[in-house]
Amino acid sequence: MYRLYRFKDIIRIPPERFGEDLKKVALELLRAEYEGVLDKELGLILTVTDVDINPEGYVIPGDGATYHEAEFTLLAFVPVRHEVVEGVVDNVTKFGLLVNIGPVDGLVHRSQIGDDRFMYDPATGAMVGANTKLKIKKGDMVRAKIVQVSYTKEFRIGLTMRQPYLGKIKSAEEIEK
């Protein structure tokens, strides 16, 4: 799920940037500070979309920069447990599928692909169901449910496809057959 947050902050404009467009400089400085930040409450901050900056700043003695009040919008990705997502299989390994669900990849362990027993086939680079012979390979579209979100040093998302209406999404050609 994507969210927009509106924030207020004080931005330090360094003296070497004084001749430039204030709004453009503020947007660059805010993006450098906030983009890619992972926060448990806000999620993964993707970008700063806009900024409204007060053109009148103030100076702190001993510092040649100006400080301006600014209001800006952050775009963040916040995965929610039990949310159903669609994505493209980015990588297939012997332990499961890495599914691109937007700005991050989620992991579907091979035990969570379906009710069948799925094994990795190194010859085709796909996961193959033992009974159904269903093949899931890199580039396939899948529908999954978020079951775990971890905010450790790395942002990890666990997915499952073991419920009705989840799993590989058939293409138009497959449906016609």
Results as ranks from 00 to 15, higher is better:
E83I: 09
V92G: 04
R143C: 02
V84I: 15
G57C: 05
K135N: 12
L30Y: 04
I13F: 14
K40W: 12
V37P: 07
P61G: 03
P103A: 13
Q112H: 12
G36L: 10
L4M: 11
L30V: 06
R31W: 04
G64P: 03
Y67A: 09
I175K: 02
K133F: 10
A123D: 14
V85M: 14
Y34R: 08
I11Q: 04
E28H: 05
D90Y: 15
Y2K: 14
T124P: 05
K168S: 04
T73F: 02
G19I: 00
A144Y: 01
F18E: 02
I169R: 00
V128C: 15
I113N: 00
H68K: 06
L27E: 00
I45G: 03
F18C: 04
E176H: 04
G158W: 02
G64W: 03
V80W: 08
N131P: 00
G62M: 09
M1L: 14
T152Q: 13
D21E: 05
T152R: 14
G125I: 07
V78N: 07
V142F: 02
N100H: 14
S150V: 13
E173C: 00
E41H: 13
R6P: 02
L44H: 08
Q163G: 01
S150Q: 12
D9H: 10
R6G: 00
R117T: 14
Y58G: 09
R156I: 12
E83K: 08
V147E: 06
A172E: 15
A65F: 10
G87I: 09
P79H: 15
V142L: 06
F7Q: 00
S150I: 13
Y165G: 01
L27V: 04
I157E: 01
I11C: 05
E41G: 13
R31N: 13
G114F: 03
R143W: 01
E86Y: 06
G139F: 05
A123P: 06
L98I: 14
F155W: 10
G167I: 01
T160F: 06
